[in-house]
Design a protein around this nucleic acid. Structure first.
Lengths: 239, 239
DNA sequence: ACAAAAGTGTTCTACCTACACCCATGC
DNA sequence: GCATGGGTGTAGGTAGAACACTTTTGT
């Protein structure tokens, strides 16, 4: 590899006359509160557009790649490590940010809504909104949220990422409610459960969750090892 | 909107201490030559990695957004306008380009291989390669091609983008060969044709193509208006 | 005893897959 | 007349969709 000095020399030699730009990372953070999908938004504390709602973001630093920058931003707001996260799209309209030529790479993230650090969220004047009544966002952030929603819908059909939004132990009903929220439609509980059982990637526990009924509902865990080994053998998750 | 002067003032005020980076656009250009998928590569004429094969690319200019930059790069190499094109992913590893900190946004493009400007290609020392025997590429360009291929496969199943790779008039056999190339497997011709006919988005012409058989094969055109109006009514293209 | 959520199977339909023969023509 | 690619239909299997009643238990 090259040292910084060498790089500067090479850069001067080869790419000297090219334009440089500011690059931001913006994160769409999804959570699920047993009934609906929510996103975490911050009230902007600086100009431009101070006081308006926006996605949480930050600028890419010289020594980071984009994934690292997104992880930093997510950690800064939620206090969480090991967040499920995926790059979405790069927004580049010349006038998207009135203050300067800034491009933004969007990421979406899935977190267990009960696990975030409430103090940090307060400190950053952030707040959870259900997707239906989220406020209007600055710049092109509304479009980012829409694209994230579309991607999440597609991904959830072909990868078992839903579990990232649930607690470790969950009931079948919670899982179904989650998929209903993601897909935006009611599902038949018998079909849903037998589909999921046919995958054989859940562990049924002896415990029951008594919080939502008198009878109680069995709790399940996602068996990630089993899922991975089934994938090795050609298994294809498909809701 | 703001004038450039205002922008500079705002930028100094708000984003002054952030790092700026070079941003490139790299294009995976797909073509189809009746038998297999090909990509258009250029022999790099400048350092670093001069003389090696790479995707065609260029740096984003201050006054462009990314789509415009990609269109410029594509036009520069092929002479074509109105190319089908989609943004794929942004690559950002700190050391991906040894010369300087450069990020690259990849785009893939689909063109009718017979329509490109052969002079321009020669002038840019570019060449078509079938995917199987394409040379090793510089930086992370191999990964870009792989991601493009994955995306193309998925897209081709749910959107009728295959026609972008074919001449305006084509035979059913050509269409089938194209889908076989994209999906990497043989298809049954009866099933393929009856599936496509059930969509009812092709126009069967009275002309025949006599180049590949004595009997001749009917030529078809994609009926884009009909496709669009069917989509309006809820039709879902799904191979 | 009743309210409220949990749990459980079957039938019908639609789509996908596999499969084989005749046709038209140039040589 | 034969070799070459073009064109066409059907039957069986599989996966998805629709659908209703019994169980448990706290109040």
């Amino acid at each position: 590899m090259h040292t910084t000095d060498q790089k500067e020399i090479l850069s001067l030699a080869y790419y000297d006359h090219e334009d440089k730009v500011l690059l931001a990372v913006d994160c769409i953070i999804f959570g699920f509160d047993q009934e609906e999908l929510k996103i975490l938004l911050v009230k902007r504390g600086f100009e431009p557009e101070k006081g308006k709602w926006s996605l949480i973001g930050g600028f890419l630093k010289k020594e980071e790649d984009l994934d690292i920058a997104a992880i930093r931003v997510l950690h800064h707001l939620t206090g969480l490590h090991d967040i499920y996260m995926e790059q979405l799209y790069t927004y580049s309209k010349v006038d998207r940010d009135p203050a300067d030529r800034t491009l933004s790479v969007s990421y979406y993230a899935l977190i267990d809504i009960r696990k975030h650090d409430k103090e940090l969220i307060k400190k950053n004047s952030a707040q959870w909104f259900s997707l239906k009544d989220a406020p209007n966002l600055i710049f092109d952030h509304n479009a980012m949220v829409e694209r994230a929603m579309t991607r999440l819908r597609r991904r959830a059909l072909s990868k078992p990422i839903g579990f990232e939004l649930l607690p470790e132990k969950f009931t079948m009903r919670q899982l179904q409610k989650l998929y209903e929220a993601i897909m935006g439609k009611k599902l038949d509980k018998r079909n849903f459960i037998s589909k999921f059982n046919s995958f054989d990637i859940l562990i049924k526990l002896d415990e029951k969750d008594m919080s939502s009924s008198k009878k109680g509902a069995y709790l399940y865990k996602f068996n990630e090892e089993k899922y991975n080994s089934k994938v090795e053998e050609g298994f294809n998750f498909k809701i």
